[in-house]
Write a protein that binds this DNA or RNA. Sequence first.
DNA 1: CGCTGGCATGTTATCGATGCCATATATGCA
DNA 2: TGCATATATGGCATCGATAACATGCCAGCG
Lengths: 336, 336
Amino acid sequence: MATIHDVAKRAGVASITVSRVINNSGYFSQGTRQRVEAAIAELGYVPNRLARSLRSKRTNILALVLTDITNPFFTTLARGVEDTASDAGFIVIFCNTDESETEEQKYLQVLLQQQVDGILLVPARSTSDSVELVQKHGTPVVVLDRRLPSSAKVDVVRCESVDGAYRLVQLLIGLGHRQIAVLSGPKIVSTAEDRVTGYRQAMVEAGIDNRLQLVYYGAFTQSSGYEMAQQVLNVNPRPTALFAANNLIAIGALKAVRDASLRVPEDIAMVSFDDLPANLLTSPFFTVAVQPAYEMGQKATQLLLARLAGKAPERCQEVILPTDLVVRQSSGQALN
Amino acid sequence: MATIHDVAKRAGVASITVSRVINNSGYFSQGTRQRVEAAIAELGYVPNRLARSLRSKRTNILALVLTDITNPFFTTLARGVEDTASDAGFIVIFCNTDESETEEQKYLQVLLQQQVDGILLVPARSTSDSVELVQKHGTPVVVLDRRLPSSAKVDVVRCESVDGAYRLVQLLIGLGHRQIAVLSGPKIVSTAEDRVTGYRQAMVEAGIDNRLQLVYYGAFTQSSGYEMAQQVLNVNPRPTALFAANNLIAIGALKAVRDASLRVPEDIAMVSFDDLPANLLTSPFFTVAVQPAYEMGQKATQLLLARLAGKAPERCQEVILPTDLVVRQSSGQALN
DNA sequence: CGCTGGCATGTTATCGATGCCATATATGCA
DNA sequence: TGCATATATGGCATCGATAACATGCCAGCG
């Protein structure tokens, strides 16, 4: 309620001097510092950031717009963003789009209105509409996790989805599996597509008949994983291995497998993209391709901050991080 | 980048008229509306909320400060808050304190600086310091989930923790259990204390020897639940039932029980406060006292919004919601 | 001694939107 | 016809902080 003027009056100085003390900028004597700080304490003064930001054209707020904050992959990524931003004195606002483009646009609109300094975006769709909206407003953006059409001139930080999927499926093939199903996310999402591409590469390379390729597209959710797995388990002959394109799909699929009274890996082998949450009671158990989620958040934020500081190279960057193959029990032993 | 003045110039009107069109307030003709909207579209104009809020002294932002957003109970509560706030045209900022009072104070400071219109707080400690800080600034607060010292003049929305715990333990006693351990949260948190109180009430009422009462205080986390359970399982004779004071403790304890090669409920019965996350692969399985998390968030937000609108009664309100006892398998059958 | 430059503080304008008041025409009703 | 009222629009001040510029003091140095 008290303003900088109230503080100034009480301390017997001009408001700009109070501003200097608060921001530790410019010159002021130790005496003034003390009188100002005393006045601040007495009045319980809290600076008004709206006014500050309006004048300085800086809010020190970043926004992270993503599709599913309950997914441990994104939770970890978010922590990478938060930590990095926080160290640089920025606050982070998190927005959840639930894979909906409409929600995404709504959030972006609000964020631009709030004058956030920069946006980290996991786009719900592989179009550049959202990025363009933000860029038109003059706000820096970095795209995370997913590809955009190459027409979009924007920094991207993502993982080698094709390669990670390729290696997971190669592992299964190496263990003797031939009939492998992939349970993927929405066809329009680049990571879902890329993981199927990696799967196909490995299958083709191993000379496995096209007809043995079982590709399912659904959503990156547990329930979708459950449903896709139910379908797969009814295929005759039943595949000997499942590849889940993300962790939630893996959980749902595992549930479906257990509900069908089948054992993993004895009756059916499973591998998954992304590590699984720790509260499953059965983990660590899954063989997975782990994405460096924390580092992705970190890198993307560093890039964004560099742009804000005008320290990034002019040209757009595309940072692609490798995945880490972690072999555990769910993939099982070699078939005989 | 374009301002309201740019739009005004382009539409050939004064900026205040543009403001009226944007906010649908006051009078303007349909012709002006169209010219203004055209200008807005052409310029890609996005209103600056900082300026707007500075003038109007309203940000239309609420904040929800809680201790652990990864806990499904709080996630659900948060959704209740978000939905209610959103319907009323408010944005919600979420802040995670990790049960740390220091973090809480830091966040509150930032939120006050951002001029949020109101704050929903799950306090990390049972002191009124935080509430007073906020109230001194003139910002309305509603406390959620936990009790504060009665000296605090503040609205509270919480659950009947004592009663829920009492009924859970009573259920176990009714099944024939005598030696029951309670694994609770931090002693300083009112819900942890209240659930132990409910436990004691049930035990005393059943005339169970004091020496059979096993009370553990830890944290409301999975790892703490794991550790407490490990200790409990080493007690001789081993308790026949466990009461976990929240869902995360329950998960950790269940893990410890399984790691000790014991079965639930055959070897040891379990009950818990709060429902468990759906991705456990074993749920629904736990016998629980469910708190109406969504309604709590809803109620608290309604109360806060009423205060903002000056429509709430002068006196502070304390809303206490009942818990719902859901009996499933983990509590087992009656002992013979 | 006068000039330079670090230090300390203040004045004024401004960020972008809107509250308040004023103006002007059209419409309704006694 | 006259006056109240609804409609349509604009001018100016203002929210609270800070950028940009200005002022004054004093030490140091050639």
